[in-house]
Structure formats: C-alpha cells, structure tokens
Amino acid sequence: MKNTFILLVLALILGSSACEKSEYFEDGEYFYLKNKGAVMPIWVKGKVQSKVFILTIHGGPGASGHEFMLSKSFQTLEQDYAVVYWDQRFSGLSQGDPKNNTISVNQFVEDLDQVVDLIRQRYQDPKIFLLGHSWGGGLGTAWLGRGNNQSKIQGWIDVDGSKYDSLEVQAVKTWTLERVPAKIAEGKDLKFWNYVIEWYQQNPNPVYADKEPYIFAEALNTVFDGAALADTNQINYTKLFLKSPFSLAYFTNKLDLSFVNGIDFRPEMRNIRIPSLVLWGADDPTLPLPLADFTYRTLGTEPAKKQKVIFPNCGHSPHYEKPTAFVASMRGFIEQWK
C-alpha cells in the first residue's frame, strides 16, 4: 500500500509537469515544408486576420528563424501582423537528412520560393513583406531579383544584409584595421591585436567562410551590451528547453559555409523594383555601415519607393538591439505599402 502511494505521487508529479501548458505549443500554426530531403519548420504567429504577413529569412547561413520569434521586436509586430518564421535546410530546428550536394545558393533560393508559395496557398494570397537579416538579406535578394518572383511580394526589408562577398570582406577589413591601432595604444592584449594585423597581411583577400575576420570584428564591437539586451528581450530558457519545439538540433545542425564564398547578387539587386526598406546598425562590425549605402544605391527600386534607416549605437541585429526603433520603422514601411 505504501509502495503504491509512493508510485502514485511520483506519477502525479511527472504527469503535472508534462501537462503544463506552453505558449510555444499553442500559439500560431506550425507546419513543415519538405524539399530535396530537408524538412523545414515554418511557424506562423501573430495577427493572421490582418492578411499582412512578414516572412522572415534568417542569417548564418545556419542560424534559426526561431531566434526572431524570441525577440521583443517580432513579438510586438505579431500584435498587428502575421509573422512567418522559417528555418532553412541544415539550420536551426530543420529536420530530415538532405544530401550535402543540396547546399547551394540555388537550392536555398528554390526552398524560399516554395515557402512563399506555401504561405500564399495556405493563407489565400496575403500581402507578404519579405525580411532578410544578414545572409537572409542575400538570400531574399537572390530570390526577389530572379524571374518574376518579386510580383508575389509587397515590400522588401533588408536588415544588415550580405549580398556581395568581396566588397563585404574588404569593408570588414577596413573597419577592423581602422580600430586596431587604438587598441594597441591601450596596451592591452597586444599579442591578439598584432596577430590581427599579421593575419590580414597574410590573408589580404579573405572570403565569406573565413571565421577570423568576424572574430576580430566582434572583439572590437563596443556597442553590444549582452546584459542590457537580455533584459530587453527576456527569454525563459527553461521553458524554451523543456516546453517548446526546440531540440539539440539547434546546436548540432551545421553546414559548410564555403557555398557562399564569392556571392555577388548585384544583378539581382538591380532587378528589384518593389518598395524597399534598408535597415542597418551604425556600428555593425560584421557588415559595416558603408554597405548600407551600397545596398541603397544598388537596389533597382526608384528613390521614392526606397528608404534607408540607420540605427545609432547599434551592431549587426537592430531587431534585437533596438526593438522600439526597429518596430517603428517596420510599421511605417508596412502601413505605407500594404
């Protein structure tokens, strides 16, 4: 009898823990796109009845669209619009077992094309605004600038996007080497800063997949305040780990980045004619500010329909670092062109 009682208590404790509700299991719709071996999750949250959808394309390559969902910016935007979070192949919580030969720009473009078609089909042709961050800015550009794809989209939002490898790595190099002398003058970590100079002397033309330039640039990132940002974007990590779609795939999914070496989406940029919004962090070390001007100038959209917003004291991720200003810019653009 006593044993049965102990077992019953144990079962109740476990049962109540397992049955606890979580908004991660209830909010929105969560479905998958299967293409060429990849099974990619798509999470649609927010105000679907607005018929205005923000389709997000995450960076990396290899990051996760689910990260956007955790930021205050997108949670705020969900109050007015539907937001689509998609994890690309080999990225985030993407499942399946696609072959390595599917890691190509063209394959990612094809996947995005199917995501757009699926959203249009499932939600009866909503007004879609496409948003790409970092690598997502390049992928969105590559898709929009090909064929007649942009006719499916209401507006394009490029957030610190990567489109032209050789220009970008040189911009990072310039940004970094301009700041290293001041670090050396401080007299701290001299070995590291001298190594930075030495590395660039030995590698004058780095490529996208080189990790060192981004490590060096991040070491110079003076505006990123992790504690303040964690306070702004409060995340219940316990709930995320225990009561959400998250799995260890978030950490183990990996892809070889060499497929983005040498990307040059300038032809696609020039083909884009739809309303466009360029959002950039003034202190972005990963894709420095001159690239915002390059993006704005190269976009084929006529000046009256394109806009550039620079966020002061902000690094590579304005949606995370400057949620209030980011949302204001997004709302203004969407309301104008929806």
Partner: peptide, 23 residues
C-alpha cells in the same frame, strides 16, 4: 513530424499535404 502538417510539391508543381512519417 509533429505539427499542423507536412507539405511538399507534387509532380505537377502543386504543394500538397504529405505523410508526416519520417524515417
């Protein structure tokens, strides 16, 4: 796969719901 469905393009290029069985 657990959620609100799995979709894939069929041979005619139409996106359709498919089995959720993985491997």
């Amino acid at each position: 796969y657990e959620g609100d469905g799995v979709f894939a393009k069929d041979e005619n290029g139409k996106l359709r719901r498919i089995s959720s069985f993985a491997n």
